[in-house]
Design a protein around this nucleic acid. Structure first.
Length: 809
RNA sequence: GCCCAGGUGGUGGAAUCGGUAGACACGAGGGACUUAAAAUCCCUUGCCUUAAACAGGCGUGCGGGUUCAAGUCCCGCCCUGGGCACCA
């Protein structure tokens, strides 16, 4: 009875391949629809059951859109640069290219076995030269538009491995490989000017306001806003000796509550203000503080600091307050110095308590002295009696008028550091002359290829530094000549080396959605017409772990392209959804070390791809995390076997008993796919299946309709049934069924009957029955009559189609 | 600490313009078929009282409240998961 899933699935996968069923056409007259999955990193572990969750969802929607007459672009590719391949190479000496291409083959085989309707002719891999050539083009583009620049910045450095580490490789302040302490070291690094796009520009919405125009989960938007961290405030000038020390504050209303002043240990003017008596103590504090990583500093709860001996003059009242140095003040935010208001700031409060500094309240009537609204200002001269909001305005006006401060907006977001001292990434297309000046490599010299003669053992420098072929004399000479010919390099200068750092892999994944629109183009990353035709992406699906970085960077690329006329839209993803994580059966995270990983290959082999797809959609709400259950997978296979039984029944003509159920099912499945409520869509089809199984025969039209509803979920089986129903073509482009609203309503409805809010019976009535008829009938129910006899009816309740109720006195 | 989700049977979950809580599955128990097992089919399955009920009561994290009626709305808590974390 059970169908042969291996034969059926192979047959249709071969058919789709041979017929190019899912190839998207660039010049179709149909309306376009672009459904995109976040392209995976092809790890050595192979596909995880979490991958097909998102891919099945987009596949269902892509397939339904084809049925609805859209031209659908549904591509897949590989985010294939990255650290794991390189670490694997250090350990085993297998070249990253080899292991990565192997992994891609495995991933591709696994994805194909699941029957996704990807247009494989558009496959891209970010580690291949014909892709990263354009990643390098983007670097050039950003540099030319002054959106890429070089400056010194601290990096994570492991003294033991002699290498730079990515943030992910720093675990609890130590190197993940050798557990040695990680320190901060200053290197010259490349940055992208993401902060340029925070606010709106002419014709391009900002990273903040653009969020208001797109259909994304609210929590993701909140995360992005928090990450950008916009604060409006004022920069206030304090005077120390005769130097200006400005601070940024959002609370100028508390200026009269300032009792001390704090500078960061890295503050450039610190040395200048420290008095001779305090020099030793300050030096003893600043030395170790500087070595701490950002992580360590943020994890330390105890506030520490030392007095510098200096005093700062508060501009609002001329008061001299002591200046301290403390590492709770960050050099990377604001000005690296703060005015301390221990009466109303939690950190300043803790610090003042510890070092016995004055705590002076300037707002009364607050439940919690740290709250930011309510209360009335006191002890503050001309601000007395005002609310916090009024006080902020008045203090700002006063400061600006007296030229002692200026209103300013501060952000947490920093520019994006894209340099990586790593091998397995896209080389940065720059060269340097004998004086260290930087030059863009001419476009006709791209791609800058990754060389193979590279030693992976960490030496403390980027692996590419010591590649002879990478720095081949003839190449540098040729580049030098071209640069001189174009006038960008002075005649007396010589090009001596290439940039040896590679780009953060997030750069590669910030623009891949455009390459899918025009994957073979050798003139540009994507033809403008095609970019405007297919974009923006109608539906983007991926894990919630990427809510901040990837999505923010991709938005930045989109805005840069839009500003400079490469595309006509300023948000890349019109709609975004996240899939929930699939946990192991025991409710823990699936991981190799816990030994609880489920391999999709085994599920496909035992139950079939259609079963796996349906199971993952049936598990629960799409966006919610949920545990895997292999026994439940079998339940979905049982359902598909039952569906097969329905399709094997004799076909009838004439009356069909379940017309209403059929139309209800069309309605529900259609609506619920659109809302990504796949679990209830499947329940509804199960209900239909159970009803049809009881019939001796089923009309052919009913089977065809059911088959169409099923096809996005179980495409192999649907193709098989479709051909059994006598069709030669694929079902993929058959019109989606419509329902008749009149046929989704039953002729009779069951009314619940309540007495004093308690259920006392139910009654079957015609759907058109009047209030009076239903109430009269309800009163005739024995049990209801019994309860009604206990008192007098005070109120009668009638909810059409649902409930009648009696309230007794 | 802050922000965002979410707490419903043995399990995954359904139902949120307030209107019969537990759809649909999994698991479990019983039965049919079979030499037997698997598969398949049929029945039962929230908890308590009861021999049983088409008898009554209790039930959506906890405590209050609004209402004829609350998983759903309001107030106050508890717990779990995720994200951010000294951002002045």
């Amino acid at each position: 009875m059970s169908y042969d899933h291996q034969a059926v699935e192979k047959k249709w996968q071969d058919f789709w391949k041979a017929n190019k069923t899912f190839q998207a056409s660039d010049d179709s007259s149909k309306e376009k629809y672009y459904a995109l999955d976040m392209f995976p990193y092809p790890s050595g572990a192979g596909l995880h059951v979490g991958h097909p969750l998102g891919y099945t969802a987009t596949d269902i929607i892509a397939r339904k859109k084809r049925h609805e007459g859209f031209e659908v672009l549904h591509p897949m590719g590989w985010d294939s640069f990255g650290l794991p391949a390189e670490n694997y190479a250090i350990k085993t000496n297998v070249h990253p290219e080899k292991s990565t291409l192997n992994n891609i083959q495995t991933f591709k085989r696994q994805l194909k076995s699941l029957g996704f309707s990807f247009d494989w002719s558009r496959e891209v891999a970010s580690c291949l030269p014909d892709y990263y050539r354009w990643t390098q083009w983007f670097f050039r583009f950003l540099y030319e538009k002054d959106l890429a620049y070089r400056k010194k910045a601290p990096v994570n450095w492991c003294e033991d491995c002699h290498t730079v580490l990515a943030n992910e490789q720093v675990v609890d302040g130590a190197c993940e490989r050798c557990k040695h302490e990680v320190i901060q070291k200053n290197l010259t690094q490349w940055f992208f000017r993401v902060t340029d796009f925070i606010e709106d520009q002419e014709g391009v919405s900002g990273l903040l306001s653009g969020l208001d125009t797109i259909d994304w989960p609210e929590s993701t938007k909140v995360n992005q806003r928090n990450w950008i961290g916009r604060s409006e405030g004022v920069e206030v000038n304090f005077e120390i000796n005769n130097d200006q020390f400005s601070v940024f504050t959002t609370r100028p209303d508390t200026l009269f509550g300032v009792t001390f002043f704090v500078v960061s240990p890295e503050h450039p003017l610190l040395d200048k203000i420290v008095t001779d008596e305090q020099k030793t103590e300050v030096a003893a504090y600043v030395g170790p503080a500087g070595k701490k990583t950002a992580l360590e500093r943020s994890e330390q709860k105890e506030k520490t600091g030392v007095f510098t001996g200096a005093y700062a003059m508060n501009p609002i009242n001329g008061e001299e307050v002591p200046v301290w140095v403390a590492d709770y003040v960050l050099m990377t935010y604001g000005t690296g110095a703060v005015m301390a208001v221990p009466g109303h700031d939690e950190r300043d409060h803790l610090f003042a308590q510890k070092y016995d500094l004055e705590i002076r309240p300037v707002i009364e009537g607050l439940e919690d002295i740290f709250q930011k609204t309510g209360g009335t200002i006191i002890n503050s001269d001309f601000l007395n009696g005002l609310s916090i909001e009024e006080g902020i305005q008045k203090a700002c006006d006063w400061l600006e008028e007296k030229d002692k401060g200026i209103r300013r907006t501060e952000y947490k977001l920093r520019d994006w550091l894209v340099s990586r001292q790593r091998y397995w990434g896209a080389p940065i297309p720059m060269v340097y002359d004998d004086q260290g000046n930087e030059y863009l490599i001419p476009d006709d010299e791209l791609p800058v290829s990754l060389p193979h003669d590279v030693d992976f053992v960490p030496t403390g420098e980027s692996p590419l530094t010591h590649s002879e072929s990478f720095h081949a004399k003839e190449d540098l000479q040729r580049i030098e000549e071209k640069l001189k010919a174009s006038g960008s390099l002075a005649a007396e200068r010589k090009i001596v080396r290439r940039e040896s750092d590679t780009m953060d892999t997030f750069v590669c994944s910030s623009w891949y959605m455009w390459r899918f629109m025009d994957p073979k183009n050798e003139e540009t990353f994507c033809d403008k017409k095609l970019a405007n035709h297919w974009g923006p992406i109608d539906l983007y699906v991926g894990g919630a772990e990427h809510t901040v970085l990837h999505l923010l960077y991709a938005r930045f690329f989109c805005k840069a392209l839009c500003k400079h006329g490469f595309i006509d839209y300023d948000e890349p993803f019109a709609a975004l959804r996240h899939q929930g994580m699939i946990q192991a059966e025991d409710g823990r995270k699936m991981s190799k070390s816990l030994g609880n990983v489920v391999n999709p290959d085994e599920v496909v082999q035992e139950f079939g791809a259609d079963t796996l797809r349906c199971y993952e959609m049936f598990m629960g709400p799409f966006h919610q995390q949920k545990p895997w259950s292999t026994t439940s997978v079998g339940g979905l296979r049982k359902w598909l076997d039952r569906v097969a039984k329905v399709f094997n029944k004799p076909q009838s003509s004439g009356d069909f008993k379940h017309q209403v159920l059929l139309h209800k099912t069309i309605k529900q499945v259609s609506e619920q796919i659109d809302q990504m409520k796949f679990n209830t869509a499947i329940s509804q089809m199960m209900i239909l299946t159970n009803a049809l199984l009881e019939e001796d025969s089923v009309p052919k039209e009913v089977l065809e309709t059911f088959n169409l509803l099923l096809s996005p979920f179980a495409p192999h089986l649907a193709e098989e049934f479709w051909s059994k129903l006598g069709h030669a073509d694929s079902i993929a482009y058959e019109a989606w069924p419509e329902y008749d609203p009149a046929l989704t309503i039953d002729d009779t409805v069951t009314y619940a009957v309540q007495v004093n809010g308690k259920l006392r019976g139910d009654i079957e009535m015609s759907k058109d029955a009047s209030k009076e008829e239903v109430l009269a009938a309800a009163k005739e129910i024995d049990k209801v009559r019994k309860y009604l006899a206990e008192g007098e009816i005070k109120k009668e309740i009638f909810v059409p189609g649902k409930i009648v109720g009696f309230v007794l006195k």
